[in-house]
Design a binder for these strands. Sequence first.
DNA 1: GCCAAATTGACAGTATACGGAGGAATTACG
DNA 2: CGTAATTCCTCCGTATACTGTCAATTTGGC
Lengths: 165, 165
Amino acid sequence: MPSEVDLIDLLPEEALRDAAHGGMDDVYLKPGHLIRRLQQMAVSVFARECEGLDITPVQYAALVALRDNPGIDATRIAALVAIDRSTMGNVLERLEGKGFIERRANPHDKRVKLLKLSRRGTRMLADCEPFVRAAQARMLEPLDAAERIQFTQMMRRMIARQDNV
Amino acid sequence: MPSEVDLIDLLPEEALRDAAHGGMDDVYLKPGHLIRRLQQMAVSVFARECEGLDITPVQYAALVALRDNPGIDATRIAALVAIDRSTMGNVLERLEGKGFIERRANPHDKRVKLLKLSRRGTRMLADCEPFVRAAQARMLEPLDAAERIQFTQMMRRMIARQDNV
DNA sequence: GCCAAATTGACAGTATACGGAGGAATTACG
DNA sequence: CGTAATTCCTCCGTATACTGTCAATTTGGC
């Protein structure tokens, strides 16, 4: 069992200088590990709040993107939601299976299949809204007002930095 | 394409009051979405830094946990790394396939298979170390020293809060 | 108008990630 | 001491998530 060391709050630079002895190599406190756990937490909170609605975070994001951009194609939806084209293909397949979206051929470009929310998908999205809102709020619940702003901004900076690499 | 609204930095509470018009429902700025993208970024940075080493973040975490706790069983490794038992089973299978770990029956408890780093696994872990360190540093690179502490602490609080629910 | 380049959706392969079921083995309790 | 509860592993099913590949199609350059 890893001991609860006091070195938790050392900077990475300080950790580097500290690397001679093994204590600071504690994976459990490294950003990569914490980010993975944060994502687990977010998915878990979403699932708990939206229990019984038969929807996942990515599926919800795809539906919202589709509602705001009707008649878009799969490649652009994938870019909007920030997901791989292949993965989005699977997501859309499941959403079509549940009857939340409709796919039809584009007469002007036979490569493309245009996507649209079905009436059922529109209703589902409206039903989800309060629960999704509650989930988002619950994730940030341990942070105070100022911290929520800071945390969101820091995430955006970290994401943007690597997007341009 | 979602327009770059100025409401980005509103608090969730303010967003709630603001929910009448659609602008603030922008999924792309909600914590759940940003956390998912942050995790994508972290995995991507890890993969870039450790390119050619044939190792993933979770596999690395499992190896470290195994190094620090030789002779542990799969269930406890899963708990340490904060991963599902099923998933850890697959991870360990792959690690055994690569020759990084050894699995043998426990004579005292025939349910259990004891796990140990192989010599090859030990060497691999040592080879990884500088690259993993570089990856962890790169993730936090856009943040200054104080922010890195804050960000890590905030992540830990958010994770801990939902762990106890 | 023709051919190369780019785009789009589909598919295969690999790797997390989780819940649930089931079997084998151990422990706890009466 | 015997049975119920627990523990551990494995397998199945579902859902992301990415790379690479492929065919069909469209587009751009000449």
